[in-house]
Nucleic acid binder design. Structure first.
Length: 696
DNA sequence: TTTAGGG
DNA sequence: CCCTAAA
């Protein structure tokens, strides 16, 4: 049994230390498209660099709960269980998930500079694309709100460890933080006449990206859609919560050799399968469900489709390798495909399901936004208002952009309790690597948000878009989205698609961190669903939830979850058994929404009184079934509570009563019934007592 | 799961 | 309404 104990460890944040950047942007007129390029490359290079090489240290991230947790686990051969000093005991695991974390430090000097894309597009690069960094170093914790727009907040307690690199000057990155906690900034200087273009090409480039450490590209299945990274935290109306369907594989590098060369990419695209969830039934029940459209061709390997739901049928582990291999190859080939077929395929969210709907059209331009067209427009000299000439007075009319931080979704890792700390590190490292690469490796699109609105017209100059150097930096933001090429499987050209549910924790959920997915080696099927607050269906579900008719999505989810539960295999010891799963926001779990208050109507009171008169107090379940059977939102506890208050109300003077007045007649009946049934209860007790006495 | 009772 | 001990 012990073997199957798990440790659930949350991976909460990333911090990316200073990464030298070799490439300087070209001179000349900046063009935001290129700027997007550079942004993209910023993010991408940065993260890939991080993903490429990680040094993982187990470290507590709890900032307040005692020093015992802050000790770095050093002995990597010690088993977790034996390590009494580590807060990794199973019992505490769930509660402490959010307190524990890993800090990833990178050997900076070894971080290669990744220029793949950039160099590719060098020919078109021009402009003062200087990248300036400031290392306004980590302000710890609490700033997660930055990422959240309006009321949608998530408190991501993070593992903020301060990295205090100094500003490194022109053309360098310093301290980009992947995580909610830091406010490190990455500033980009753009000239004011740069144009805005969200670039597809960059995404394509990214798709073709080669890992500097020569990791097998096929190791990762990039997220298929809706990866949203928030770059501009304050302004991005969509990206605050990255909705991530993060199909991460935990492939061992070494596994590549082991695996057979089965490379039928079309046969298994588990990357597009949602992960099964196990855990709290209630949570599952309350999960909102979203749907992704995916290509139906992935339906081998025992994936069963029922209606709009996808079930997973695990196959034996022996098959995993094979499928894994092919899985890994899948994105690789897909990228190639897309490279050839780039533009047509990257026009935005054709396969986007509801999940991605909030942003799927970020880059969509009614006029089309192909590289060519925007380039042409730019070349033709997009008309500039006469007044705009002022902005060209000097080259100093630059718009400063800043990227406060990158947010990378939380990961949830499960590891056997008797695994060594070393394996924990190893797995975490790999997990993180792959997660990051999965997110970014698929390529990113960049959207521009100005003053809360998406700027769609890529051909506009910054000036035309109203982005001036006078503006506060905060007015301008970016959204990062997954490259649509990853979103729509190139295979299955007929375009038939099915809908996959994607779960999103909803506020009503009471969740424990430990109740998330448990998963084994087939990480292809693991995905991260981050709460997408902007999702339309979520609110629907919430509303539906407390009204009578069970909604189909709920039902499907339950089924799905049930299936998953049955199919989750026991994890083995090896690292492959580790899973990447979403860690539900701890804070939001705490902030379980109170049910909305629904005062009883007189009609309801009447029904209640009647039922109680008949059945008596103490049979609330019967009362419920008798009088409120179709009022799903009234539980028997509610009825009992209401009776309680009714009795109280009846006893107090009418002046003291509040709310909708209950007819005195009803209150009288309440008192009568209450007295009667109290008497009955007392009699019952007397009876019992006398009976027992007689027996004695 | 229900009941009972405090918060 | 929530929470939870106890049945």
């Amino acid at each position: 049994m012990e073997l199957h104990k798990r440790l659930d460890c949350g991976f909460i944040g990333y911090q990316v230390p200073y990464i030298p950047r070799a490439t300087r942007s070209a001179r000349g007129r900046g063009n935001i498209r290129k700027k997007s390029d550079s942004n993209e490359m910023c993010a991408f290079d940065l993260l890939t660099a991080v993903a490429g090489k990680l040094l993982l240290e187990g470290e507590s991230t709890s900032n307040s709960s005692g020093k015992d947790q802050s000790a770095v686990v050093k002995d990597t051969t010690e088993t977790v269980k034996e390590d009494a000093d580590t807060p990794l005991k199973e019992n505490h695991c769930n509660e402490r998930c959010q307190e524990r974390g890993f800090f990833i430090s990178q050997i900076v000097s070894e971080a290669p500079v990744v220029n793949h894309c950039l160099s590719k597009s060098t020919d078109t690069l021009s402009g003062p694309a200087s990248v300036i960094t400031s290392s306004d170093c980590s302000e710890k914790l609490g700033s997660a709100e930055q990422f959240i727009n309006g009321e949608r907040k998530t408190e991501n307690r993070n593992c903020s460890t301060k990295v205090e690199h100094e500003l490194s000057g022109y053309g360098d990155f310093s301290n980009c933080t992947l995580g909610a906690e830091s406010k490190k900034q990455l500033k980009i200087n753009l000239s004011n006449d740069a144009t805005i273009t969200t670039n597809k090409r960059a995404a394509i480039c990214s798709s073709e990206f080669h890992d500097p450490w020569d990791r097998k590209r096929s190791m990762l299945v990039a997220s298929d859609n809706t990866v949203k990274l928030s770059l501009s935290t304050d302004l991005d109306p969509f990206g605050s919560f990255p909705v991530i369907r993060n199909d991460v594989q935990l492939a061992n590098k070494d596994d590549d050799e082991k695996s057979c060369g089965c490379t039928q990419p079309s046969t298994r695209n588990k990357a597009f399968m949602p992960a099964p969830r196990v855990g709290d039934w209630r949570m599952r029940k309350l999960q909102a469900s979203k749907y992704w459209e995916v290509n139906p061709q992935s339906d081998e390997e025992g994936h069963v489709n029922v209606d709009n739901e996808t079930r997973h049928v695990y196959q034996k582990r022996e098959n995993v390798y094979t499928s894994e291999r092919s899985q890994r190859d899948f994105p690789f080939k897909k990228r190639k495909l897309y490279y050839c077929n780039s533009f047509s395929n990257s026009d935005g969210g054709s396969s986007d399901g509801i999940c991605s709907s909030p942003t799927k059209d970020v880059n969509r331009d009614a006029s089309g936004y192909s590289l060519a067209s925007s380039g042409a427009r730019a070349a033709a000299g997009t008309s500039i208002p006469k007044g705009a000439s002022a902005s060209f007075r000097s080259n100093d009319s630059h718009v400063k952009l800043k990227i406060k931080s990158f947010r990378v979704p939380e990961l949830f890792v499960e590891i056997p309790e008797n695994a060594t700390v070393g394996s924990l590190k190893a797995c975490e490292s790999r997990t993180v690597m792959e997660a990051v690469t999965a997110i970014l490796g698929g390529g990113l699109r960049i959207g521009v948000v100005f003053q809360g609105k998406k700027v769609r017209d890529d051909s506009k100059t910054l000036f035309q878009a109203g982005i001036s150097h006078d503006d506060k930096l905060d007015a301008l933001g970016f959204t990062l989205e997954p490259s649509p090429s990853q979103a729509s499987p190139p295979l299955g050209p007929e375009g038939r698609s099915r809908v996959l549910p994607c779960e999103t924790p909803q506020p009503l959920t009471r969740c424990s961190p430990g109740s998330t997915i448990i998963h084994n080696g087939m990480q292809q099927e693991t995905y991260n669903a981050f709460p997408d607050y902007s999702g339309t269906n979520l609110s629907n579900f919430i509303e539906r939830d407390h009204d009578s008719a069970p909604s189909p999505p709920d039902a499907s989810l339950e089924k799905n979850a049930a299936d998953s539960r049955a199919l989750v295999p026991v994890a083995a010891m090896d690292a492959e058994a580790l899973a990447v799963v979403p860690m539900l926001k701890p804070k939001r779990c705490e902030t379980v929404q109170r049910r909305i208050r629904r005062p009883f109507s007189v009609f309801e009171v009447e029904a209640l009184v009647q039922a109680v008169e008949k059945l008596g107090t103490g049979r609330w379940r019967d009362v419920k079934m008798r009088a409120f059977d179709n009022a799903k939102h009234r539980t028997y506890v509610d009825l009992k509570d209401k009776w309680k208050t009714l009795v109280h109300t009846a006893r107090i003077s009418p002046q003291q009563r509040r709310g909708e007045p209950v007819p005195q007649e009803l209150l009288d009946r309440v008192l009568i019934a209450h007295a009667y049934w109290s008497q009955q209860q007392a009699r019952q007790q007397m009876k019992h007592q006398s009976e027992t006495r007689l027996l004695l």
